[in-house]
């Protein structure tokens, strides 16, 4: 188990299932787990790279429009991917910034929670997304407590 872990849950809670990442962050924050720091943000931005350098591991939690429900969890590696927008880099790219600019050694993981509704305004999760959030929460809580961050 890494000694210190940063979990960044990102997405827009005003866009339905896009809010899965922040929703997970708020649930974990409420647990006040030792060694775990939690951030919620609208998107991944460059300054996250500086923050990541302070931790042994970082978990990027986001909604995903594709892939199997309820979630996937996998290790990622620093990779320079040209950003689609400057305000929303990929987790691999943020990890790359952290490594190359700030000499970060943090291991990176991504927790993608399957969402279904994104294209309207609304501050709630769809029923299926809620179920996926609960499953992801249970998984990551167990993983953090057991110190076993294995890909799933």
């Amino acid at each position: 188990m890494p000694n210190t872990v940063l979990l960044i849950g990102y997405g827009n809670p005003g866009r339905l299932d896009d809010g899965l990442g922040p929703a997970l962050a708020f649930k974990l924050e409420a647990l006040s787990m030792q060694g775990l720091s939690v951030e919620a943000d609208y998107q991944l931005v460059v300054e996250h790279a500086h923050e990541i350098a302070k931790y042994d591991a970082v978990i990027f939690a986001d909604s995903t429009v594709e892939g199997d429900a309820p979630y996937f969890f996998r290790e990622i590696h620093p990779t320079p991917k040209e950003a689609f927008t400057s305000h929303s880099f990929s987790p691999e790219t943020i990890l790359f910034f952290a490594k190359t600019i700030f000499n970060a050694r943090a291991k990176g993981y991504i927790l993608g929670m399957r969402g279904y509704e994104f294209d309207r305004f609304g501050e709630y999760l769809s029923d299926k997304a809620k179920q996926n959030l609960d499953a992801a929460f249970e998984f990551i809580q167990d993983a953090l407590q057991s110190g076993n961050l294995h890909a799933k």
Binding site: D17, D18, D62, S63, V65, G67, I110, F118, D119
Partner: peptide
């Protein structure tokens, strides 16, 4: 003010 979920963009 689009969403940006994984695989979305």
């Amino acid at each position: 003010c689009a969403t940006h979920a994984l695989g979305k963009m």
